[in-house]
């Protein structure tokens, strides 16, 4: 019912700016205008030159036959072609797109759930909580190269710790090549499964690496939930599980929605983790790794641009759909 009102400028700041824009500017306002742009100009120039223009150039490159070898002769208004998109719409690209999706959806969901569990477990104060909270953030801030190297060593089939203890404690007959094996047959309760070993390993790594991020934000949000709400529910006889689902969770949902968008975007684009863990082998080749290989190993700048562009478009589509259908609903409820 208030849809017409919503279209009007939202805050007082916006309406003030709108009015001022229409009327003649006072000398004071004009001075402010100039000062604002002057102070901002170094930032703006830097971002335009180093980010916006390059992205526009990628658009051009995607439609040109540019390789590392002819890079010096290629112009901006060179001959255009759509040939670069041929290998975008090939089966191998769709394969890596599917891998990227599985990796980012499962990685995001797991990291947020783990972060939620951690935030809830560390909610009540106890001695040493501050230290434990801080150390729980280390996987997220530590250098990616160092932690991936440690993980690859831990999972190494020859002298890795996991396989050593796996053989001792769980009776594994042979070492499991966690980071290079594509599929493994597993039988559980008499049923035969096929699981993608390497893909699952990188997803588990992603959980370990980024649950602290979710933990940090959910902890901040949990601190802001007023105690009185929960106290009232407790007096009314709500059990811990009921209090969680009816009091705490609804308060956390907007933060979790924001986290899932952010984490999804970052995981969808992520390159470092998978490149350093598996190099894209064992069925873990995500689109970012494909793009990188086209760029460096093949030196095919045009094809790399085309694929990166499609990646960005798909990402934009997901985020747009999400914002349209989910973010609005939460605002209403």
């Amino acid at each position: 019912m208030s849809s017409t009102q919503k279209d009007a400028p939202a805050g007082p700041a916006a309406s003030a700016a709108g009015l001022r824009g229409r009327r003649k500017l006072s000398p004071m306002a004009r001075e402010e205008q100039r000062a604002g742009l002057t102070l901002l100009s170094p930032t703006l120039v830097l971002v335009l030159v180093m980010v916006v223009l390059p992205i526009l150039w990628t658009l051009v490159l995607a439609f040109q036959r540019v390789r590392i070898l002819n890079i010096r002769t290629a112009g901006i208004f060179g001959p255009y072609t759509v040939a670069n998109f041929d290998n975008v719409f090939s089966s191998s690209f769709f394969q890596s797109l599917a891998t990227t999706l599985a990796y980012s959806i499962l990685g995001t969901a797991g990291a947020i759930i783990l972060g939620l569990i951690a935030a809830l477990a560390l909610r009540k104060p106890f001695k040493g909580r501050t230290l434990i909270r801080a150390s729980m953030l280390i996987p997220y801030v530590a250098p990616i190269v160092a932690v991936t190297f440690t993980w690859t060593t831990m999972l190494d089939p020859q002298f890795g710790l996991v396989n050593y203890w796996g053989k001792r404690l769980f009776g594994w007959e042979e070492a499991i090549p966690f980071l290079s094996e594509r599929v493994r047959d597993v039988s559980l309760l008499g049923l035969e499964f096929q699981i993608p070993t390497a893909l699952i390993t990188v997803i588990v790594f992603e959980w370990w690496r980024s649950f602290p991020f979710a933990f940090l934000f959910l902890t901040a949000r949990l601190n802001a939930v007023p105690d009185s709400l929960e106290e009232a529910a407790r007096v009314d006889g709500a059990t811990p599980i009921q209090r969680f689902f009816h009091i705490i969770l609804p308060q956390l949902l907007p933060t979790m929605a924001m986290l899932s968008v952010l984490r999804f975007i970052w995981t969808f684009n992520s390159f470092d983790d998978i490149y350093l863990l598996t190099g894209g082998g064992g069925g873990t080749e995500v689109v970012a790794v494909t793009v990188f290989n086209y760029l460096t190993a093949r030196g095919d700048i045009g094809a790399a641009s085309a694929q990166a562009l499609v990646l960005a478009l798909i990402l934009g589509l997901f985020v747009g759909v999400y914002i349209k259908f989910f973010a609005k609903k939460e605002e209403v409820s």
């Binding site: 100039r34 990628t58 390159f271 990188f292």
Partner: peptide, 26 residues
């Protein structure tokens, strides 16, 4: 308060979320 303030903020947010692999190519 200057003209384009909101647009600039939005631009920065978009840049922050942009795939760095896409930026790496150009």
């Amino acid at each position: 308060n200057f003209f384009g303030r909101r647009q600039v903020s939005a631009l920065f947010l978009a840049v922050y979320l942009f795939p760095s692999i896409l930026l790496a190519i150009p």
